[in-house]
Structures are given as C-alpha cells and as structure tokens.
Simulated scan of single mutants.
Amino acid sequence: MSDRSDRSDRSDQGRPTSVLAQPLRPPSAGRLAACLGLFVLGAVVGVAGALVQPAWFPGGLLLALAGEAGLCLGAGLALRSRAGAASAAGGWVIVVLLLTASRPEGDFLFAAGAGSYLFLLGGIAVAVICATLAPVRQPNARAVRLGK
C-alpha cells in the first residue's frame, strides 16, 4: 500500500509533483516598472498612430497598426508573458478611447470616416491578438504533458 501512495505523489520521473506545480509569485519591482513603462509607451504609440493614420489613408493606417502590433508583440516577448503585451495594449486602448471624445469647443481628433473606425476597431483587434500570442509560463520539467 505504501508503494501505491508513494507513486501518486510523484511524477513519471520520480520527482515530487511540487517541483512541477510552482505557485504564482507577486511581481517584482522591476517587472512592475517595466509594465508601467510599457503602458506609457503604448499611450505614446496610440497618440502617434492617431496623428499618422489620417495623413496617408491606406499607408498611414497600416503604419499605425503595424507600430502597435510591433509594440505589443515586442513587449510580450521582452517580458516573456502576456502581462507585457497587455500593459502596452492597455495604454494604447485607454489613450485612443480618450482621444475619441470631442471637447466642448468642438475640437476632435478623429473624423467620422472609415479610416478612423478601422484604426479604432483594428487596433483593438491587434491588441487582443498580440496579447493572446504572447508566451505564457510553462513548467520547468522537460517531460511534462500540458494536455493532461
């Protein structure tokens, strides 16, 4: 009987399962600072994209969306987590949504045209895709089957 209970507490290689299942740790100060910096960088890319996209209609729109995609994918790869991509995307989304509001003086940044809507909706779609494609945390063991 002791052999059977011993087997249930161990993985296939004979190591304890606690080595494979590591608990989540709170983020370090450096990781929080990196996420905050990526949030601000996402906001800057959002403002730049809002200014570039109406300049040359198809080219400016593609350039603005490519800049956001590069930032989000690069942030995810740099931090090796979805938090990096989500931080950059969050800064972009918040700034672009704030820029869509018109002021009492009648000033606005986005015209009511197809390019503006493609920039808003396409940018949100790019942010979601990049945050989904970012690498996730994997177990340290080599022979771990993630499907089970």
Rank of each mutant, 00 (worst) to 15 (best):
S116Y: 06
V126Y: 02
V95E: 00
P58K: 03
A83M: 14
R137D: 05
F57M: 13
A111G: 05
P58M: 12
L109R: 08
L121N: 04
L79K: 03
S81R: 15
D107A: 15
A127K: 07
I94G: 03
P135C: 00
G91D: 12
V96Q: 01
L65V: 03
L61N: 00
E105C: 01
V126T: 11
L97H: 09
L121W: 02
A134D: 07
V95I: 14
L120Y: 04
L73H: 13
E105V: 03
R137I: 06
L62F: 07
L51D: 09
Y117N: 13
G115W: 09
V93Q: 00
A78L: 15
A86P: 11
F119A: 10
L77G: 15
Y117F: 14
G70W: 01
L61H: 01
S81C: 15
G60Q: 07
A125H: 00
W56G: 11
G84H: 03
A64N: 09
L77K: 14
V128S: 06
A89I: 05
V136T: 11
A141R: 12
V52N: 04
G76H: 01
A78N: 05
S81D: 14
W92P: 05
V126S: 00
G123Y: 10
P104H: 04
L62V: 12
A83P: 15
P135R: 10
G70D: 00
G74S: 10
T132M: 15
A125K: 03
C130I: 12
F119R: 03
L118E: 01
L118G: 02
F108I: 08
A125E: 00
L99H: 04
W92Q: 05
L71D: 10
Y117Q: 14
P104L: 13
A85G: 14
A101I: 07
P104E: 10
L77C: 11
P139R: 02
G84N: 05
L62P: 08
I124V: 15
I129G: 03
A114S: 11
G67K: 09
L51P: 15
L51Y: 08
P58R: 02
L133H: 11
P135A: 09
G84P: 15
L77R: 15
A134T: 09
G91F: 06
A101C: 13
L133Y: 08
A88L: 08
I124W: 13
L97N: 03
S87W: 08
G84Y: 02
Q53T: 14
F57S: 12
L133R: 14
P54I: 05
A64W: 02
L97A: 02
F57E: 09
A83Q: 11
Q138G: 10
Y117H: 15
L71P: 07
V96W: 09
A69M: 09
V96C: 03
I124Y: 14
E68D: 02
